[in-house]
Nucleic acid binder design. Sequence first.
DNA 1: TTAGTTATGTTATAATATAACATTTATTTA
DNA 2: TAAATAAATGTTATATTATAACATAACTAA
Lengths: 152, 152
Amino acid sequence: MTKYTIRKTDINKALKQADIICKRNGLRLTKLRQDVLSLILKEGGYVKAYDLLDELKKIDPSAKPPTIYRTLDFLLEHGFIHKLQSLNAFIGCSHPQDHKECYFLICNNCQKIEECCSKKINNVIKNTTSKNNFVPDQAVLEIAGTCQQCLN
Amino acid sequence: MTKYTIRKTDINKALKQADIICKRNGLRLTKLRQDVLSLILKEGGYVKAYDLLDELKKIDPSAKPPTIYRTLDFLLEHGFIHKLQSLNAFIGCSHPQDHKECYFLICNNCQKIEECCSKKINNVIKNTTSKNNFVPDQAVLEIAGTCQQCLN
DNA sequence: TTAGTTATGTTATAATATAACATTTATTTA
DNA sequence: TAAATAAATGTTATATTATAACATAACTAA
């Protein structure tokens, strides 16, 4: 079990890492993309697209829905963020180089998100798909419930 | 691995089963709820809420978005259907008495959905949550990719 | 039978997301 | 380096998904 939780101190690290990955892969981490990624990372938890748009407008008043959705698409495509399908929300990824899929624990009480990626989960997905002769492209695993802290 | 796929011939069975479950649990399977469940089951694959609304309007022209969403909520709550979070769509359940959670294989090519529920998946989810001291309420697992038939 | 609850009707609007086309900026190549 | 190409962003409009709020009707239990 590997736990990842983004800390404020890790934001710059994550931004630098994104920069490196982009350079290595011939991707353009434009100011807009940096700004949006930075806003998402700063948030700490998950963000809704239109809340993010409101934040972005403080930097660039001309920003509009396609501005944010296109940027989110870029960041998603290259693994810098993930989409939480059951919340229609987005969250930064602290380890974009490690893997494509991320699995999440979502606390219904405090809204905190915990990544819960593990090889065991990867394996059970692999076994499930291979038994069905199914070639997986993307796996979404989101477990909602109550986190440790909220249980006390 | 248990595979479930709804066949046309199973629709009536599923409707009757829903009826029995409702009676047993003091739930009211009203005409509206039956109609909507029937429309979803007849579809075979997944349905979008507004497409369903269009179908329902043929039976009840006064149907409006809240009509369909409230009915979907009832059907979801009692496990007669499931929501595919990554598609914003709904699909009938052929075995509502068996379990609450359903896991899905989603073919990006032919749009066919296959349930892929298994104890192994249940177990890995249990292990993941217990290691995190997390009390799960609902698990979403949706694996998108290419199905067997579409590979040929 | 009337009080309470559950379900439905209805209007309006909120929240999420994309299509389509114009313009600008970066990259490639002649 | 200039022109051609590709990639990113700007902009308008609209599509899609979902819920709030309040009125009425239908069932249920006392």
